[in-house]
């Protein structure tokens, strides 16, 4: 039986620095394997949609621009994503990956969470289809990496 068994720890804390990390002032690098935001390489994709089928949260949409020439746009919903990386495992052509840097995703508006990946020309085509009569958006209006 002891009175104040944590005294040792408490005393030690007086002479050591706090365990607190000073985020956001000081930022430590996230581990290499961290499952952050998804990224997609349009060049390798064959449009098999296995990633879409296996996604547990409907976070990925693959929009076909031109099936024959394998032109697609990927619409990724960071707010639905569960960061499980099943899509990365399911993809046979290694065109998906998860970044270990894109994890500070907080935003004040939900619109920021929908990201479109694809070549600039494909993105412009998609925009023209979805927003008829608005003309081609100026470059940089809807950048591929809106979350960064």
């Amino acid at each position: 039986m002891k009175f104040g068994a944590m005294f040792v720890d408490v005393l030690r804390s007086v002479f050591t620095r706090p365990a607190t990390r000073l985020y956001p002032k000081v930022r430590t690098k996230a581990p290499a394997r961290l499952h952050g935001k998804l990224y997609w390489d349009p060049k390798l994709c064959t449009g098999c949609t296995l990633c879409v089928k296996d996604c547990p949260a409907d976070a990925i949409e693959l929009i076909t621009i031109d099936r024959a020439t394998k032109h697609f746009v990927m619409r990724y919903h960071a707010d639905r994503c569960t960061y499980c990386a099943q899509c990365v495992v399911s993809c046979r052509f290694k065109c998906l990956g998860m970044s270990n840097e894109g994890w500070e995703l907080a935003a004040l508006k939900k619109e920021a969470f929908t990201v479109e990946y694809g070549s600039e020309a494909d993105l412009a085509k998609l925009f023209a289809v979805e927003h008829p009569g608005e003309g081609i958006p100026p470059a940089g209006e809807k950048p591929a990496s809106a979350l960064e």
Partner: peptide, 20 residues
């Protein structure tokens, strides 16, 4: 987190084995 990439829902398993 270092091993699996997530702190809580590690998603270490896939059907038939593990990812990591």
């Amino acid at each position: 987190e270092t091993v699996s990439g997530n702190r809580v829902n590690y998603s270490a398993n896939i059907l038939g084995g593990v990812k990591i």
